[in-house]
Write a protein that binds this DNA or RNA. Sequence first.
DNA 1: AAACAAAATTGTAATGATTACAACTACTAT
DNA 2: ATAGTAGTTGTAATCATTACAATTTTGTTT
Lengths: 138, 138
Amino acid sequence: MITTTMIVARQYLESHGIRPSQQRIAVMHYLLTHRTHPSVDEIYEGLKGEYSTLSKTTVYNTLKALSESGAVLTLNIAGTMANYDGYVSPHAHFLCTKCNKIYDVELAHTELLGKKLPEGAKIDDIQLYYKGICGRCR
Amino acid sequence: MITTTMIVARQYLESHGIRPSQQRIAVMHYLLTHRTHPSVDEIYEGLKGEYSTLSKTTVYNTLKALSESGAVLTLNIAGTMANYDGYVSPHAHFLCTKCNKIYDVELAHTELLGKKLPEGAKIDDIQLYYKGICGRCR
DNA sequence: AAACAAAATTGTAATGATTACAACTACTAT
DNA sequence: ATAGTAGTTGTAATCATTACAATTTTGTTT
């Protein structure tokens, strides 16, 4: 079944120069409708019911392509595995080290305040990670 | 051979409540004298000549203990593996995605500017990562 | 100093995330 | 329709990290 949010996902892919295959649309759509910063495994488990032939390798390949084109964000906050975020506007993340949930954190300023970045460096990506215990877990 | 910086390493461990074994002193000393944000493997390779019986598991165990006590910082900037920093005062990091070197970045303000952190959360750790291409690699 | 207990170290095996790769399928353009 | 390119799939390999059991070291008590 094709929904309007899947058409959004398709157009989003196209606007990032990524050819919109079934699988890529599905992964992008999953990220746009699950703001939980899922791992590869969660995305794969969430989709394999609907797309019975889907391979985990495809999920990896897709996320790599999406991340390189800037369509999604790769989070390395958890250490053991990557998590993905379909919303790419500047924001930070908070990981609860007890329940392992990742929460979005708004930023006070758009620009992050690095002083003395290495001479002549070109910045492609900025990630601000908070870790701790969330209110529910305390 | 025991040097004065190794005594510093020993005292540093003790001040963090970590029993100063030979191996732990060696790892701590390595981090204090190599400000290169080394990986487990680099530390192990750097030390195994001098400590022939050293095991990589010990390096892992040691870094875990050091990190949990706050004596060292664990960086998850690289994605594939952890890197370690013996200097724990607040600062950010820049990873050159070409040469894979990690540089320190001073912060403009001591406090990092998260707005709307999850209700009632307790923050234990803040990491600010920049990624890009360093001046030498461009 | 000897004996004991607790903690640390070691080597190997297991785990888990990710990547490599080769065969197969789908899409595009002539 | 055909050929060529890009995308997908499943399996096997890789690499970082952890689990674990045996051994060694360290600290404490007698």
